Computed example of a mutant assay.
Amino acid sequence: MDEKINKVILNLQRNNMAGYFVENKEDLIQLIASLIKKGEKVGCGDSVTLEETGVFEFMRGGDFVFYDKHQKGLTPEEKREIYLKNFDADTFLTGTNAITLDGKLFNIDGNGSRVAPMLYGPKQIIVVAGINKLTDTVEDAINRTRQVAAPLDAKRLNKDTPCTKLDRCIDCRHEQRICNDFVLITGQFVKDRIKVILINQEYGF
Rank of each mutant, 00 (worst) to 15 (best):
I5G: 09
N11D: 09
M17G: 06
G19F: 03
E23N: 15
E23V: 12
E26R: 14
S34C: 03
L35C: 08
K41R: 15
C44L: 05
S47G: 02
E51N: 02
E57Q: 13
M59C: 10
F64L: 14
D68E: 14
K72S: 14
E78K: 08
K79C: 00
R80D: 11
E81G: 03
L84P: 02
F87I: 00
D88V: 04
T91I: 04
G95N: 09
T96Y: 03
T96I: 14
T100S: 10
L105D: 10
V115M: 03
V115A: 01
A116Y: 01
A116H: 00
P117G: 03
L119H: 04
Q124E: 12
I126M: 06
K133N: 08
K133M: 12
K133I: 12
L134S: 07
L134Y: 09
T135D: 00
T135G: 08
T137L: 01
A141I: 02
R144H: 10
K155F: 04
N158R: 13
L166G: 10
D167I: 08
D167P: 08
C169G: 11
R173F: 00
H174A: 05
Q176A: 11
Q176E: 15
I178A: 02
N180L: 04
F182D: 06
Q188N: 11
Q188G: 09
K191R: 13
K191Q: 10
D192I: 05
I197V: 13
F205G: 14
